[in-house]
Amino acid sequence: MSAARSSLPPWLRAAPALLRIGLLEAFAYRAEFIVWMLSTTMPFIMLALMSAVTREGTIAGFDQPAFTAYYMATLLVRHLTGSWVVWQMVMEIRQGTLALKLVRPLHPLWFYFLEAVSTTFFRSLISVPLIALAFVLLGAGGSLVTDPALLGCAALGIAGAWILNFTLSAAIGTLGLYIESSVAVWDLWIGCFMIFSGYLLPIELFPPWLASAARSMPFPYLQSLPVEIMTGRHDLAHALPLLLRQAGWAAGSIALLLLLWRRGVRRFAAYGG
């Protein structure tokens, strides 16, 4: 056992311990954690408006249960894929504590990645049962797909959205190595995300020109793609090419992150030294 473990590369050998630390940290700050989770109110607020709209009939093919399912799925995907690693990175860059990560014999992004994985796991422990309950209580379960192939696609879509959210959040955090106002870049990013990702409104509700503009951007792949698959708005023949495109965006964003990091970390001495 120990021989098998020591033959693993060091970054992989460190992973279980780092994951455990991430979980324990999330658990230690559980009250804060839950307050953060409660702050995700926007899907409920949009659902209230849309419910008022559907009192007088359907809109763009959405009726009341369809909207309920859409926004509950939105809430689920946001909880499972959202990433706020940018805040931690900006703070560590500003205060110079990033140096502590740089001297360790592992890639600093690996620390952030594993911490994000354990945070997501902890968040899913709370959010998945509660949102499942909401589906049942609100009577929206019937609008979800049951086909195992499509469910598999939805899971893939969630995984892809997680990777995109994490790498892009980390990439904007890495910008902190170049410019002081990377937080402002994040604010802009979140603003675009809100509008174009289908988080506020299903993209189908947009006027056609805005919808096609949104779909040519990466934002839908960060949020609405798995929601649309889960709520049965794509069949298998549509879902697979979209997932491929998501994988393409993910590969591109990983490359961007690594490039930004490699060039940026050389400039870090400016803060620490």
């Binding site: 949009m46 709209v53 809109i59 402002a184 604010d187 603003g191 506020l200 509700l205 947009f206």
Partner: peptide, 29 residues
């Protein structure tokens, strides 16, 4: 400057759902 741009941005994202939704219905609630 950043604050001004962000303010404009928040304005767009507050107004957009209102304009999109009311474009489909003359009256809501």
């Amino acid at each position: 400057v950043i604050g001004g741009v962000m303010s404009l941005f928040r304005l767009v994202w507050t107004l957009l759902p209102v304009l999109v939704v009311w474009a489909r219905r003359p009256e809501i609630a």
